[in-house]
Design a binder for these strands. Structure first.
Length: 612
DNA sequence: TAGCGGACGC
């Protein structure tokens, strides 16, 4: 007995000195120890101390130390095992947490209790493993642990996140006799995170009508639900309710409101709200930067520099948005600088960040660096493969995209609609007709992925570019739903490329039925008529366009010369640094001529007349 | 002594 105490004392003393003083002072167990550690040691339940220490190690990210301490513990009770499972889960090491749970089931003499089950359910949720979660559910029923609120809430969360529908989650929710705020917010989150914001709002409404206790979490997720459906009206109402309940100074709630204004496209209101906020954290900045990324990427970059000047250090979320902003603007040198910042901060292994870097380099015209990032990734998800395939496709590397798709399937990643769209588009641009059609067939036959409008658009484009306009038309006729503008747009493009005015007229009519004021459609059709020498029809189109009153917006291009981005349009004489722009264009022209390119000037008649 | 809910990307 003495020996055991002595070894425990040594163990704690050795670990105690590894903890930074600031953390050491905050440890709960030091409050019980009135004597300093150098004084004769008074053991007061060392297992409790070790468990507390494990928890503290996880809190400060010392995962290895936590595990070493756990390994060194002579006796490990259910609380110590649970602290380990919860610790790994809190650091996003879900698989590790699950293995520990399985190990505990084999080795620990104690039964898992409600603490253990709720922690391991969180790990199942993290792994997105319905089968593991269902296993824990079975265990909970067997041990009479279902009915404990924490277990039920964790079960509800697991089913909401892992199951294909919300049915199981709703069943668990309805069986909770005394629901708390967590039960409600978990259900609302479940609906919202799977894209059913209206479902989430419906539950929130019910929560209000049943006069359930409201807290900042419930408001935060309700505002998120409004944001996901883009409902400014509901968002405004909930914003008013937030103020009424006195949560207007809660930073996470304010962040959700800010996000809602951005997602509803109300950027003036978002900015005004941002500057009126009594307190901001990193998430506040990240929310606004992410909000502006698509709408106004320049503003995103400006906010990024302002954020840094105010002492906030960017994290992987910030960089993901900033890299996307650089990709949108196609500013390579800026993207490279931000990439340097990522390396400097040791964020290189972050998956989402690497994915956005692949996309950025490809969009900035540097497919080699894009590929380099892809190759250096230690793990890849579907987005990584998709981004690389899109990059290859837009650069005309159809064969590489096809090879990548096959490699992805070999590495057991199941393709989705988006990745099929990427590979089909790559085939289309590289003229790989047979491969493209094979993927289209395999998508439905082998993977049961239903083609959406955009995929039909890709296949119509694939057939059209290969000159199979009749087959493209037959495909449109065979579609189970009414073709949308992406399908007819692709077909009209094919008609223009192959000079087929009658088909073109039909495609343009269908497009104009869907979007009557699209001047681009008139331009396209008039060009088809012009190429066919049908000047009467050409003139009719021009007249119709004038009647519309809206001109097709002039297409703008931009080049980056000496770290300066210059935007210009056809015949532009007044833009900034035009001498640089024309210098670069002359160079491009020479390259094209050397490569044997002969421009098709016929189709430009109307565009030039229109200044587009 | 240990546990459940709020921000990003193609």
């Amino acid at each position: 007995m003495y020996q055991t105490w002595n070894s425990r004392k040594q163990l704690f003393t050795s670990h105690y000195h590894k903890i930074p003083p600031a953390i050491r002072n905050s440890l709960q167990w030091t409050q019980n120890c009135t004597t300093p550690i150098s004084q004769p040691f008074q053991p007061k339940g060392p297992s409790i101390l070790a468990t507390n220490l494990i928890k503290s190690y996880f809190e400060i990210g010392l995962i290895r130390e936590a595990h070493t301490l756990f390994d060194e513990m002579p006796e490990r009770d259910v609380v110590a095992w649970t602290a380990m499972i919860a610790g790994y889960t809190s650091c996003n090491y879900y698989t590790r947490a699950w293995s520990l749970f399985c190990e505990m089931m084999r080795e620990c003499p104690d039964h898992p209790n409600d603490f253990t089950l709720s922690s391991s359910l969180k790990a199942c949720k993290g792994m997105k493993s319905l089968s593991c979660g269902t296993l824990v559910h079975g265990l909970a029923i067997k041990d009479g642990m279902d009915g404990r609120l924490y277990v039920d809430n964790a079960l509800l969360d697991m089913y909401a996140m892992c199951s294909v529908s919300m049915d199981e989650a709703c069943m668990v929710f309805h069986n909770i006799t005394v629901k708390n705020a967590v039960s409600w917010t978990t259900l609302i989150t479940g609906y919202t995170h799977r894209g059913d914001g209206y479902g989430g709002l419906q539950v929130f409404k019910q929560m209000l009508s049943e006069e359930a206790e409201q807290n900042p979490f419930s408001f935060s997720i309700a505002v998120r639900a409004c944001a996901s459906v883009g409902s400014y009206t509901y968002g405004k109402q909930i914003h008013a309710a937030v103020t009424k309940h006195g949560f207007e100074s809660n930073i996470p709630v304010m962040n959700s409101i800010l996000d809602m204004y951005c997602r509803c496209g109300c950027f003036c209101e978002a900015k005004q709200y941002f500057y009126s906020m009594p307190g901001r954290d990193l998430i506040t900045w990240n929310t606004l930067i992410a909000g502006y990324e698509k709408f106004n990427p320049d503003e995103s970059l400006y906010l990024f520099s302002k954020m840094e000047s105010q002492g906030f250090s960017p994290n992987c979320f910030t960089f993901t948005s900033i890299i996307a902003a650089c990709a949108q603007l196609a500013v390579l040198s800026c993207g490279q600088q931000v990439h340097g910042g990522i390396v400097q901060r040791g964020l290189v292994g972050n998956l989402a960040l690497s994915n956005s870097l692949i996309d950025m380099y490809a969009k900035c015209g540097n497919i080699i660096d894009s590929h380099k990032i892809f190759c250096e990734m230690s793990s890849r998800d579907l987005v990584s493969w998709t981004s690389m395939m899109i990059g290859y496709g837009t650069h005309g590397y159809g064969k590489e995209a096809v090879e990548l798709f096959d490699e992805m399937v070999r590495s057991s990643i199941r393709p989705d609609q988006i990745v099929f769209m990427a590979v089909l588009s790559a085939c289309s641009h590289a003229g790989l007709l047979d491969e493209g059609l094979r993927y289209f067939k395999s998508m439905v036959g082998d993977y049961s992925v239903a083609p959406n409008q955009e995929i039909y658009g890709c296949v119509v484009d694939l057939l059209g570019r290969a000159g199979k306009v009749k087959e493209a038309y037959e495909l449109i006729l065979s579609m189970p739903s009414k073709p949308d503008e992406s399908v007819w747009g692709a077909f009209l493009g094919a008609c223009k490329a192959h000079g087929l005015p009658n088909f073109g007229k039909m495609a343009a009519r269908s497009l104009l039925d869907l979007r009557p004021n699209m001047s681009g459609t008139y331009v396209m059709l008039s060009n088809i008529y012009a190429a066919d020498g049908r000047w009467g029809d050409f003139a009719k189109m021009r007249k119709l366009m004038r009647g519309l009153g809206n001109k097709k917006e002039a297409g703008r291009s931009w080049v980056e010369v000496r770290n300066q981005v210059s935007s210009f349009f056809v015949g532009d004489e007044v833009g900034l640094h035009m001498e640089w722009v024309y210098g670069v264009l002359e160079m491009v022209n020479q390259h094209m001529q050397e490569a044997g390119y002969v421009p098709d000037l016929d189709c430009l008649i109307h565009d030039l007349e229109d200044g587009t």
